[in-house]
Write a protein that binds this DNA or RNA. Sequence first.
DNA 1: CTACGTGATGACAGCGACTGACATCGAATG
DNA 2: CATTCGATGTCAGTCGCTGTCATCACGTAG
Lengths: 188, 188
Amino acid sequence: MGRWEPDARGRLTKAALELYSERGYEQTTVAEIARRAGLTERTFFRHYADKREVLFVGASSMEELFVQAVAGAPESAAPIDAIAAGLEAVSKVFAGRHEHSRQRQAVIAANAELQERELIKLASISAALADTLRRRGVAEPAASLTAEVGVAVFKVGFERWITASEERELSQLMRESLDELKAVTASS
Amino acid sequence: MGRWEPDARGRLTKAALELYSERGYEQTTVAEIARRAGLTERTFFRHYADKREVLFVGASSMEELFVQAVAGAPESAAPIDAIAAGLEAVSKVFAGRHEHSRQRQAVIAANAELQERELIKLASISAALADTLRRRGVAEPAASLTAEVGVAVFKVGFERWITASEERELSQLMRESLDELKAVTASS
DNA sequence: CTACGTGATGACAGCGACTGACATCGAATG
DNA sequence: CATTCGATGTCAGTCGCTGTCATCACGTAG
């Protein structure tokens, strides 16, 4: 047996999510999280840059996945179709995580600081997507606009998935949202 | 003469903007801002909810203006055209404020916390726009999507205005961005 | 087998953002 | 003139977060 119990990071993550759910984000101190995990406050900050990051561990891998899917779309695909491929790929990650996602969004929705953090993660995705589209030869401002549209569709589709009374396929909601967006922006 | 110098809030605002520009946001303490304004730290927090809000005083009035313009668009106007009217109205506010806007964006661009705050202000605008569109009879998810598109066009248009080598009309950049977005989302 | 380096953690002090509670005092009000 | 009120000051305290140094099981070289 090692000097310490294994998986300190995992214990911190679990403790944080539990406490945020039980009594809310603001009412939880980092010292409490660390204590529940059998560690010290200082150690928490060695694993997470700040109190909010615990809720966003998956963000970077999701960004990567999104970007890879867009980059891997057929060269012939229009920018918006490459983005659609990215949405499709990202949707699959959430399969079987509906309840977990719902709880997490509830925590975030209850606190402005957390919403800010979520928004900047989405903005980071948008910037990465714009970059990817530019590499595909898309000029500005088309690249940035298409990327922003992709994130907007993700937000709306995800929101509908979370709040839907009966569970539906996330990827289908994404496709519907994208179609709706196309309809709404169609010139008359 | 009153017990105190007048316009405490104005002095705080000025001091904060100066210090954020001179040495950066993070390197400035609230105590320093207050001292330069001839006040105490506690008084700063009576005027501003936090250290970031100083940079976002105009946000709520801009949201109001945007919403009013959308609400006031002809009933016959399509949602996207109502949003276009809002973008037109908002653009006018920035007339003659190019240099000021540029400086402000430079401060924000240098700090992630400030970007987070800006993003949540834009998200608030998006939510208000969606609400306004719903009142105009637009169903979901069209209302949310159109609102998100409006904010996306604003972001891209504004960015182009700020970084343009030669100064151009903001409202024209907004129109161009909207047209580009329409082109990019047009089904083939 | 021993010495040494390494990596994860603890312990502790300190800064700065932010808050609550109470005191102060000029000005408006009657 | 007495009272109330509003804006500010004062002070103590919490909490997020950081820098620094100590500790000690573990692996590894000799």
